[in-house]
Simulated scan of single mutants.
Amino acid sequence: MKAQYEKYYVPEQSQWPIVGAVALFLIAIGSGLAVMQTAKQQGGVGFYILLLGIAVLLYMLFGWFKNVIDESQGGLYSAQMDRSFRQGMAWFIFSEVMFFMAFFGALFYARTFAVPWLGGESNNAMTNEVLWPSFEAAWPLLSTPGGGETRAMGWQGLPLINTMILLLSSITLHFAHTAMEQGKRTQLKAMLALTILLGVIFLGLQGEEYVYAYQELGLTLDSGIYGNTFFLLTGFHGMHVTLGTILLLVVFLRIMKGHFSEEKHFAFQAAAWYWHFVDVVWLCLFVFVYVL
């Protein structure tokens, strides 16, 4: 008896990877220029380059989504292709875990080793005397060698509210997933729409938190290692929440058009995996950046 082989769909050549690369290049250049120009309190094109990069990235995402959706709805995917998608999404989330581990590692190193050493601990008295004689080892660092002063962002208020919002969004997404598996389309649409709304609210409150940090606390990217790690971790997390919200929005629009079934809905699962990952990262971030 001959073995039965499944057909494996190989997509056509696509322009989307190079479009995405251009978008990320523009975002990197625009972000760097915008930060430098803001620090110097000068106008410039950095912010506009950043917006252009974001616009190109959104164009790439929706264009690529459209191609994949058309292929899926055209019946071109097999069970083998579905396994490839699952493995690809799992490896992608793993790479994102490593991405955030690098920044959490930098925070851990600064708090556990660099700050105590600079304060003279572990036989590093000369380091303290030579580099910063008046330095006192404490976290968060609220002063810089240049004489800049800032205030710490507390865990109460907006950070705590945002934590509750993301936890609630994971619950509503779970109910949406359960509704998908049970074929309850009305409940599915309502719970998924609520999850997207919570994501948008989270981003809005994070923007408000940044305004408060800059205007009221004097907490900026120039605020030494504390300001650097704070904005890098919370900023990159906000970027991931934005991407997760876009993924859920695309899935929601597909559901409104009647896509997916109780048995086949991996696009929904992939977006849900990513959203739960983002929520877990925020819990770690809330504890190690805000509370401890």
Rank of each mutant, 00 (worst) to 15 (best):
T220I: 05
L188M: 15
M60Q: 11
I93T: 10
F135A: 04
S169K: 05
H259S: 12
A106F: 13
H237N: 12
V280T: 05
G44I: 09
F202M: 09
F135T: 05
I54K: 07
Q37I: 05
G43H: 07
M191P: 05
L285E: 02
Y214F: 15
F104P: 02
H240P: 05
E136L: 10
T38M: 10
E149I: 10
T144Y: 12
E216H: 12
W16F: 15
I54C: 10
F25P: 01
G46P: 03
A152R: 13
V241E: 02
P140C: 11
M36S: 11
F65A: 13
T172D: 00
W155E: 11
L57Q: 13
A125V: 12
T127N: 06
T163W: 03
F266N: 08
L26K: 05
Y77M: 13
D70A: 15
L51P: 03
N228S: 15
A110Q: 10
A106P: 01
F47H: 08
I161P: 00
G44W: 04
L173P: 01
F288C: 02
T144Q: 11
S261L: 01
T150L: 09
I201G: 04
G207W: 12
N162K: 09
V130W: 14
T186N: 14
S223N: 00
S261D: 12
Q41C: 00
F277W: 07
G43K: 02
T186P: 04
K257Q: 13
I255E: 01
T150F: 04
P140V: 03
F202T: 07
G44D: 07
A190T: 14
T220C: 06
A272S: 14
L219W: 07
V241Y: 03
I161R: 00
F236C: 04
I201P: 00
S95W: 03
W64R: 10
